[in-house]
Nucleic acid binder design. Structure first.
Lengths: 202, 202
DNA sequence: CGCGTTATTCATCATCTGTTGAATTATGCG
DNA sequence: CGCATAATTCAACAGATGATGAATAACGCG
């Protein structure tokens, strides 16, 4: 019969050619943490989503909080992330933000960290964890004398404003997310947002 | 000696003149749910905050989800809540919203339901619970033919936008909430918000 | 090949959590 | 007063959860 011993590898011991289990766990953790928050996500659920044993999660990442912090580590240079927005000067910032916003919205990793805070998906303890890690990421270079100005802080603030609207409509189900004219929303906000970049707003 | 048997009432049985235990439980539940979310709040924590036994919580409210829904029940007539905003017509809406916004921000009960959704404090399961209860509250009268227009839906949408900014600064600790010029923020947004009420925005 | 190292699972523990049922005391109605 | 009813606590259970340590299998270097 077509009895291929494919899959169903049982018992302990190293697996033959497993690609990158560590990345798989991180990916699964990101999705689940973003969806259900810290307390709502169990190590077992992460392990199941990654197709591994819960013990392996601990083996790689230690305690649950450590896994969470690891999942929050997005490798985005704030200066680079800011560049496409401020390209063309303050005049184009509003319009540029529109494209960046849609981009970020479609990027699960960035969305997790930015929106994770903006949405406040997490309980207060978790928010402290995220905030500290995020502030370290965004403001860290400043502390190291890299001469970033406040625009780096403005980006997540402004972006969260834009996304807040979208999220709000999504949560309230005023209309499905699929039919959401994100561009239109951002364009509407652009004049106000632009003033952030010109410095007219605190 | 001054040995008053005040407090420290041990053992089962009815307590002498307990004021309103049920309300105390609800109040504690509101605070904790707002602070830590559904999954982050335990029945034991609610009971401890209310100074009663966990079993009593179940006795009054049944399952945890039932308690949560009970805690979400805010007795606010959306038409009445909307009135001070739309008073004076669309021209004054932006300014009126400023006062209402500050009011709502200071009202823990309203804040819990409105911001609870806006912040997305809760996991996805919880959000469904909240959303259903909230939509029932806001849109229920419409279903019953009370002829509310979309302004009732706009209010939480707009308010969440305003509050979203405040929350964002609070979470990121750009500056402490106490020194936040809420009026200035709302005033800044007023022109855009106003267009919601005049119907220029979807 | 031999052997240390790494990857992986299994079984298990201690703890926390939601929930229940019995026991106990006050209240109020007749 | 006597007794049903409501209020309240205690003890306990079953399930889930974070975490650990031993066992096992593949890998890679000499």
């Amino acid at each position: 019969m077509t009895d291929e011993p494919t899959g169903a590898v049982r018992g302990p011991g190293r697996r033959p050619g497993s690609p990158d289990t560590r990345a798989g766990i991180l990916s699964a953790a990101r999705s689940l943490f973003a969806e259900r928050g810290l307390k709502g996500t169990t190590i077992r659920a992460v392990a199941a989503a990654a197709g591994v044993d819960p013990a392996l999660v601990h083996h790689y990442f230690g305690a649950k909080d450590d896994l969470f912090l690891a999942a929050m580590q997005i490798k985005v240079d704030p200066r680079a992330a800011m560049a496409p927005v401020v390209a063309g000067g303050a005049d184009a910032a509003g319009e540029n933000l529109m494209r960046v916003a849609v981009q970020v919205w479609d990027d699960p990793e960035i969305r997790l960290s930015l929106l994770g805070i903006a949405r406040g998906v997490f309980d207060s303890d978790t928010q402290s964890l995220v905030r500290d890690g995020f502030l370290g990421l965004v403001l860290g270079p400043v502390g190291k004398g890299l001469d970033l100005d406040r625009a780096d802080v403005r980006m997540p603030l402004v972006a969260s404003q834009v996304f807040g609207f979208i999220i709000m409509r999504y949560v309230l189900r005023v209309e499905p997310l699929a039919s959401m004219p994100a561009e239109q929303v951002v364009a509407t906000y652009a004049p106000t947002l632009q003033r952030y970049f010109t410095g007219d707003l605190p």
